[in-house]
Write a protein that binds this DNA or RNA. Structure first.
Length: 596
RNA sequence: GGUCCCGUAGCUCAGUUGGAUAGAGCAACAGCCUUCUAAGCUGUGGGUCGCGCGUUCGAAUCGCGCCGGGAUCACCA
C-alpha cells in the first residue's frame, strides 16, 4: 500500500535529513482535504521539534526528499505545517487497470489459525423476534462476513435460550388457558403463538400482584408470592428433575418457536454453523460451579445457594445456583463458554449481545478467571446499543415492540409501492418483481440499521417509514443497477471492462480521480471494519462511493465520450465501482439487483 | 446512590489513535429528464459540536467539574 511506503520514506527522510529515528506508525499521515490539491498529507508540526526548523521549512525539505525518492509523487505543496503530496495519474490508473479485475481485491487470504467463534442472535424461545433482535442478527451476520474477508475462520454460533423461568411462564399459561391449540389449528406462526401465552402470563401475574398489594403485601412480597410465579417456579424444578410431562410440553412448545424462528431467519438471510442450546449447556455450568465450590473458590450460603464473591474486584456477590439447586442465566453461560472453548479452541470468542448486559459479561469474565480459565481473556463482548422507539425502550411485556415479521412485511410492501409508483416493475415477471421488492425492502432495512455505529443506541420511528432516497440501501442498490445497465450497453457496443487495456498516460479529471482513490481505500476499510467490529464503517464507505459515482454518471459521458481511450477508462471505472459496491453490500448481508 | 454509556444542524446520523474554514441524508426552498435508469444531480438557507475550566502550536476529539438522557447493580434472561 502506498501509505506504508510514504511512511517508510518519510522516516528515511527524517533519518537522512535530521539524523533521527522514528517509527513509520508515528508519522501523522492522512488523506488530503477535498479543497486542497493533493492525495496524502503529512502533518509535520510534531516533526519541526526534531528538525529544529519552522514547520514550513521542514515540510519543504521532506517534500523534496520524497519527491526525489518516490516516482509516484508528481508534486507537492506546503501549507503551514501540512505537506500535501500529489501522486501522479499514472499511479492511479495503473491501480485501476490492475486491481479492477482481481476478484479478491480488498479481501485477505485465509490465515491458518484457530477460528473465531461469533455468537449472535441467541433468542429466547418464549416470544417472537423483534426489532432489537433484528439489529443483533444483522450485526452478527455482517461481522461474520467482515471477519472472513479479513482472513479469519468464523464459526457462527447461536445459543438458544430454551430453558429457564421465562419458558416456564409461557408453558404455564398454555397449560391453564391453551385449550390444546397449536400453530396448525390456529394458523398462527409458532413463535407468535408462544408469545401470546407469555403476554397472557404477565397480564394475569400483574393482576395477581395488584390484588395482593391491596391485601396489604409489599410489592416485593407480592411479586414473590403470587400463585402464578410460584407455579412457574415449580414447573422449572420439575423440568430440571426431568419430569416427563413437563419435558414433553417443553419440547413441543420449543419446536413451535424454532419453526417460527427459522422462517424469520430465512427471510433475514442469516444462518449459523453451530446451534447451542442452554438446555444442553447448563449442566456443564452446574458442574463448573460445583468444582469451584469444592476448590473453595465459590461460597455456599446457609440456604444452599452458591455465590461468587467479586467484592474484592469492585463488583458484588453473584448468585450462580439457586437455593433450590436450579440454574440461572450465568450458570449456563459459564458452561457454554467452556463448551465453546472445548469444541473449537478459538482464538477469539465474540458475543454479539446488547449493552444492557455489560455487567453480565464483566461478571462472566471475572468468574471464569476465578475458576482458572485462561480463555476468559479471549472473550470479547460486542456490546451494541438499544433500538429505541420515540416513546423509549421496547418492552415485550408491555407490548411496545416492533415485531420482526411485521416489519419485514411492511418493508417489502413499501418497496413494492414505491417501485410501482416509479413505474419500474412493469417489464418484470411476477417472480422477478417479487424478488426485486424483497431485495429493495430488505436492503433498506438492513442498511438503515447497519449504517449506525453498533455501539450507539439508535432510534426507529415506526410512523416515519424507512426512506428509499438519500443515504439509504436502495440508493446504493440503484447506483449498482445503473452501472450494470451501463456495462450491458458497453458490452453490446463491443467493450468488455474486464479486459479493457487502459492507456496509462491519460490524465484524470478530479471526479474520476476521487472515485479511483475511494476504490483504493476499500482495502483499508475492510481492515478497519474488522478491527473495530463495525459494519457501519463499510456502510458509510459504500455510500460515499456510490454518491461519487452518481456524480460522474450525471456529469460525464461514459459511452458517449468521443475519446475512445477515455471510454475505456470510464467503463473500467464503472465496472470496478460496481464490483466494490457489490462486495461492500455483501459484507453487510445486502443483495444488489441488476435492474431496478 | 455506585458503576458504565451517550449529548454534533429542526430530525436521523458521520467525523473522536488531537490537525487546515465541522460533514451527509431527511425536511424547506430554487433549478436540471429530445442525450448512458430523475430511487439521480446541482444550488440556497440551517451549528455557542450540552455548559465551564484545563492540557496543547492546535480540542467536537484528551483531562477534571457540572447539566441533561439512558443502561445496569434480580434466587429474570
Amino acid at each position: 500500500m502506498i501509505e506504508t511506503k510514504i511512511r517508510e520514506q518519510t522516516c528515511d527522510a527524517i533519518r537522512t535529513l535530521y539524523r533521527h529515528e522514528l517509527k513509520p506508525d508515528s508519522i501523522g499521515l492522512e488523506k488530503t482535504k477535498k479543497e486542497i490539491p493533493g492525495d496524502y498529507t503529512i502533518v509535520v508540526f510534531a516533526l519541526s521539534k526534531i528538525s529544529r526548523k519552522l514547520p514550513e521549512a521542514t515540510a519543504t525539505e521532506i517534500g523534496n526528499f520524497l519527491q526525489h525518492k518516490m516516482p509516484e509523487i508528481a508534486t507537492f505543496n506546503v501549507i503551514k505545517g501540512f505537506l500535501n503530496l500529489v501522486l501522479n495519474d499514472h499511479f492511479w490508473i495503473k491501480f485501476l487497470s490492475k486491481q479492477s479485475v482481481q476478484p479478491a481485491f480488498g479481501f485477505h487470504k485465509p490465515r491458518h489459525e484457530r477460528p473465531v467463534v461469533l455468537e449472535y442472535s441467541s433468542p429466547n424461545t418464549n416470544k417472537p423476534l423483534h426489532l432489537g433482535h433484528i439489529r443483533n442478527n444483522l450485526l452478527g451476520f455482517s461481522l461474520a462476513e467482515i471477519l472472513k474477508a479479513n482472513g479469519h475462520k468464523v464459526v457462527k454460533a447461536n445459543l438458544v435460550n430454551d430453558r429457564g423461568i421465562h419458558i416456564c411462564k409461557s408453558m404455564l399459561a398454555y397449560m391453564k388457558w391453551g385449550q390444546h391449540e397449536t400453530p396448525a389449528s390456529t394458523g398462527i406462526k409458532g413463535d407468535h403463538l408462544i408469545g401470546k401465552y407469555y403476554v397472557l402470563f404477565n397480564t394475569n401475574y400483574k393482576s395477581e400482584i395488584h390484588d395482593l398489594i391491596i391485601k396489604g403485601l409489599t410489592e416485593e412480597e407480592a411479586e414473590r408470592q403470587a400463585p402464578l410465579i410460584v407455579e412457574a417456579q415449580e414447573i422449572l424444578r420439575r423440568w430440571e428433575a426431568k419430569d416427563p410431562v413437563t419435558v414433553d410440553l417443553w419440547r413441543t412448545m420449543n419446536g413451535w418457536a424454532y419453526e417460527g424462528f427459522d422462517v424469520t431467519y430465512q427471510r433475514l438471510g442469516v444462518d449459523f454453523d453451530k446451534i447451542y442450546h442452554e438446555s444442553e449447556t447448563y449442566l456443564l455450568g452446574k458442574k463448573l460451579v460445583m468444582e469451584g465450590l469444592h476448590n473453595g473458590i465459590l461460597v455456599q450460603k446457609d440456604d444452599g445457594s452458591i455465590w461468587a464473591d467479586l467484592r474484592s474486584e469492585g463488583l458484588d456477590e453473584k448468585l450462580l445456583l439457586r437455593s433450590d439447586g436450579t440454574s440461572v442465566y450465568m450458570t449456563q453461560d459459564l458452561g457454554t463458554a467452556q463448551l465453546r472453548y472445548d469444541d473449537y479452541l478459538p482464538s477469539n470468542m465474540i458475543y454479539v449481545v446488547g449493552n444492557e448486559q455489560n455487567y453480565h459479561f464483566d461478571v462472566l469474565k471475572k468468574v471464569l478467571v476465578k475458576l482458572g480459565k485462561n480463555y476468559a481473556a479471549h472473550i470479547n463482548h460486542l456490546s451494541y446499543g438499544m433500538v429505541e422507539l420515540p416513546q423509549g425502550k421496547m418492552k415485550s411485556r408491555e407490548g411496545t415492540v416492533v415485531d420482526a415479521d411485521d416489519l419485514l412485511d411492511e418493508m417489502i410492501q413499501t418497496a413494492e409501492e414505491t417501485t410501482r409508483e416509479l413505474g419500474k416493475a412493469n417489464e418484470l415477471t411476477t417472480e422477478e418483481a417479487g424478488k426485486l421488492f424483497n431485495t429493495i425492502g430488505l436492503g433498506a432495512l438492513k442498511y438503515f440499521i447497519l449504517k449506525v455505529d453498533p455501539k450507539k443506541n439508535m432510534l426507529f420511528d415506526p410512523k416515519e417509514s424507512i426512506d428509499f432516497n438519500g443515504n439509504t440501501g436502495p440508493f446504493i442498490q440503484y447506483t449498482y443497477a445503473r452501472i450494470q445497465s451501463l456495462l450491458a450497453r458497453a458490452s453490446a457496443a463491443g467493450f468488455w471492462w474486464e479486459d479493457a487495456q487502459i492507456s496509462l498516460n491519460l490524465s484524470l479529471l478530479p471526479l474520476e480521480k476521487e472515485t479511483i482513490k475511494r476504490l483504493y481505500q476499500f482495502q483499508e476499510v475492510v481492515i478497519q471494519a474488522g478491527d473495530e467490529l463495525s459494519p457501519a464503517v463499510i456502510a458509510n464507505y459504500v455510500y460515499e462511493l456510490a454518491k461519487g459515482f452518481n456524480q460522474i454518471y450525471q456529469e460525464l459521458p461514459v459511452l458517449k465520450e468521443s475519446d475512445g481511450e477515455k471510454v475505456l477508462l470510464r467503463i473500467c471505472l464503472s465496472g470496478f465501482t460496481g464490483s466494490v459496491i457489490k462486495k461492500s453490500m455483501k459484507l453487510l448481508g445486502i443483495e444488489v439487483p441488476d435492474r431496478m
